[in-house]
């Protein structure tokens, strides 16, 4: 009996400790969950770097990387952020000051939440975002295709600045080349051929995984070859 009493303290302490750890664990997971979107964001940043990569003459875009999708996400949150702000005009309600304070605190928390939660921003303007994403995706992938072809395009010595050759390109959703057709010749067969070889060597292309975006812009598009960087 005395032993029980003797151990009551330590047992209680142990229980308290466990409870504390459990609580800490539970609370500890929360911030982690909050951090999740932020962990995703670095990918977005990576995608931006990819765009800055431009001068590099290499086209090395690992074809199985779905990353570039997020870039719009990064750009979007900013205009979204202020959205919740206008809502809480601090109405000077003289009736109950306490409630007003509570409301202010709630709004502050909400704002913090809104700032952190990209997901919430997504929900608020889903439609606009989808469209902007499609445009941004189109731009990103156009630029990637541009770079891939540029890196393969070796112009013949008969090429001159401002020559123009236009091709129609047909792709399948995997980005593989279905066909190349010369629409407008430059008048120089060697120049035209150099461009066609560049297209073939640059394929398969990286195309948007988004079905609609692919169908709208990448199933069939045209390529205009018009050098501006030649010596003559």
């Amino acid at each position: 009996m005395s032993a029980l009493r003797e151990y009551a303290g330590p047992v209680l302490l142990a229980l308290l400790l466990h409870a504390a750890i459990a609580a800490a664990l539970v609370r500890g997971w929360q911030p982690d969950t909050d951090d999740m979107p932020r962990l995703v964001q670095p990918r977005i940043i990576e995608a931006s770097i990819l765009v800055m990569d431009k001068p590099a003459p290499r086209p090395p875009l690992p074809s199985a990387r779905p990353d570039p999708v997020p870039p719009p996400v990064e750009r979007e949150p900013e205009p979204v952020k202020p959205e919740p702000k206008p809502e809480p005009p601090p109405r000077p309600d003289p009736e109950i000051e306490r409630r007003a304070q509570e409301e202010a605190a709630r709004q502050k928390r909400l704002r913090e939440l809104a700032e952190q939660s990209t997901v919430q921003a997504f929900e608020s303007e889903a439609a606009d975002l989808a469209e902007a994403t499609a445009d941004a995706q189109t731009m990103t992938y156009m630029d990637a295709i541009n770079r891939a072809i540029r890196a393969q395009w070796s112009r013949p010595p008969s090429a001159r600045n401002d020559m123009k050759a236009r091709f129609q390109v047909d792709l399948v959703p995997s980005g593989e080349l279905l066909g190349v057709m010369l629409l407008d010749t430059s008048g120089n067969p060697a120049f035209d051929r150099s461009a066609e070889i560049a297209i073939r060597k640059a394929s398969p292309f990286e195309v948007p995984p988004d079905h609609d975006v692919f169908e709208a812009n990448f199933r069939r598009f045209t390529l205009l070859f018009s050098p501006q960087d030649l010596l003559r």
Partner: peptide, 23 residues
Amino acid sequence: IGLTLAAALGARAIEIVITEGWD
């Protein structure tokens, strides 16, 4: 790129313009 993008977003038929090469 700007012009092509404008064309792409406007006309919904994209054209990629290649102005440089890697000889």
